[in-house]
Design a protein around this nucleic acid. Structure first.
Lengths: 350, 350
DNA sequence: TTGTACGCGTTATCAA
DNA sequence: TTGATAACGCGTACAA
């Protein structure tokens, strides 16, 4: 087992100085062709690669991006990572991943672990607990230390940073309009509590669509699921809540769900109530994942283009990192990029 | 915007030497309580944290694990990452992720990018292309350089490293036995080409189960899908291949699929043939993901416990990293841990 | 054309 | 009790 070779060892072997080796390898004109070739041959033979850590320390730059997301077992988030990784690699960066598990503490700890030189900037989506507590000091501190952040999907306005979001309101509106145009008269929504920013926005889109079409919103048609339900074993409670929705609204003929799980669960429950999809009940879901595509019937969805979001976020971050090197300071102007959603029609609507 | 504070700056501010500051912060007894408290207070005020990169360079250890997987938009792999991240964080490590996209070249490049000091060891699952080309030099070189690897799921015997696998053969056998015991007479398998190690093993389990029960295997019942089909737009070809399976085997009454997608697609096609699930066709799938749980009917699956695999892999790697520090060399003995699969019964079987 | 010295941030060893 | 120095591996300004 041979340790990785260093400039020092090459220098010693070849009986030249370290800097000569360094220059030779970087094709410096200062070095004679003779020694240059000799050094390069030797380096190649021993498969020399500069030590990343040393470079990071020297350049005060790790060429690594930190991603903090609530969870990774989730089609949307993993798509985003795919996009980030794609762009990051292409532009010479690595990607380090931390999971907050929707917990405030884990989010803070994770950021602290990484913000000490390991990474050059963050791309993140905020944990639900953080959104609920509205404690954003860790983001502010990170930014104050000169480490840029790009937020995506779950963002907050008061933090000065670049953001990549989805047109949640418009996307939802389009979805609900689709249901209306398809003849639905009584449209329910299954959404999250309001502290989840995207949930709130999607609810808003739903309300706007109804208003546009002079349909009165009814609170009994709005089911705001408490997200704690999602902790696996509480699937049953979700079903119960949805059952309630159907019971109190027997005439319901359209459902807009803010995520896939709510949608398929709604379909499952609807079947128990003898409703046929899409004949007597049409369903549209936000988020275009595996479930939508492969469940039966397949779901009409509002696709978020997660990969594109990731790509854009990575580009924003890296651009900022590399422009910072150039410009010293100056008024920073932050960008909020909206990635358009797309309605993908499948079998759950007519 | 204030850069992160360093020992040097603290030293300057407090008019003491760098080493005094360093010692004071580490509660060295060498330092007087007076200065110790003074330094600590100041450090706390300015929120001092040691620079990770400098530590890595000094200790020749980054406390970071590199993960290389074929793709991340995949329930199994993201579960594994969850497990790795959990254990890694608990034991003080970070996790850096590279995606091979099933490509040999990307796998090699990714490993090279990380193997230069950025990480202490790899956890990986081999790309299909690599398996097909059987070119494993990058793994061997990495190991030769003293960087440990832990392989999971898709592994190869000839590489000397720790491995975490699933009892693919037994798991598949149990699944097929279940079908047999449930009365299936004509059981088909939808699997991958043999170069995918796990596909081959699962096929083997299928064959063994049949043999155990004195059922003759028929090649027309074995569908080996070429994985290139999986590239999204080729879903149709998959359906066609499966249609073929049904046409040539009209009496088919059980299907064992090596992954969820094959299973749900089979169900979809079966419906076109007028088959009811599970009444006239029972289906079991390997891999327990979202699709299995939430599709209708829900699928009976062989669960791999992806998270457990990740946890075990991380423990193996970190153990080795930390024992290496102790022992200098010696005969290395590698471990192959088998994580038992579990049959989860749902609606797609009787 | 080559080599020396320095600094990135830290810790450990040794000297004061 | 405190401080100076070396080292981790690299690149570069400057000296030879």
């Amino acid at each position: 087992m041979k340790r990785k070779i260093t400039l020092k060892q090459i220098a010693k072997e070849l009986d030249v100085s370290i800097s000569t080796v360094s220059k030779a390898l970087r094709n410096s004109v200062e070095i004679s062709e003779d020694t240059r070739l000799k050094v390069q041959a030797f380096a190649k033979l021993y498969n020399y690669r500069p030590n990343n850590i040393a470079l990071s320390l020297k350049n005060r730059k790790s060429n690594t991006i930190g991603i903090i997301i609530p969870e990774i077992v989730h089609h949307f988030f993993s798509k985003v990572i795919t996009g980030i990784e794609l762009v990051a690699n292409k532009r010479g960066y690595n990607v380090i991943v931390g999971l907050s598990n929707e917990s405030f503490d884990k989010e803070v700890i994770n950021m602290q672990m990484l913000a000490n030189g390991s990474i050059d900037g963050f791309i993140l989506s905020i944990a639900k607990e953080t959104l609920q507590q509205q404690d954003y000091h860790h983001f502010k501190e990170t930014i104050n230390q000169g480490m840029p952040i790009v937020m995506f999907d779950r963002v907050i306005n008061e933090i000065p940073c670049d953001k990549v979001i989805v047109d949640d309101v418009r996307g939802s509106r389009k979805a609900v309009e689709k249901l209306i145009n398809n003849g639905c008269k009584t449209i329910g929504i299954i959404t999250t509590k309001d502290y989840v920013s995207v949930g709130k926005l999607r609810t808003q889109g739903y309300l706007e669509a109804l208003e546009d079409h002079k349909i009165e919103a009814e609170s009994s048609l709005i089911l705001k699921v408490d997200d704690k339900l999602l902790s696996e074993n509480h699937l049953e409670s979700l079903e119960n809540e949805i059952s309630n929705l159907f019971e109190t609204n027997p005439k319901i003929d359209g459902i807009f769900a803010v995520n896939e799980l709510y949608a398929v669960t709604a379909i499952k429950v609807a079947r128990k109530f003898g409703l046929e999809i899409p004949k007597s009940l049409q369903v549209i879901s936000f988020t275009d994942g595996v479930l939508s595509k492969h469940s039966m019937p397949s779901l009409t969805t509002v696709s978020q283009h997660g990969q594109k979001i990731g790509e854009k976020a990575a580009d924003l971050l890296i651009n900022r990192l590399e422009q910072e090197e150039a410009i010293e300071e100056g008024e920073e102007v932050f960008e909020t990029v909206v990635i358009e959603t797309e309605l993908i029609e499948r079998e759950s609507t007519k």
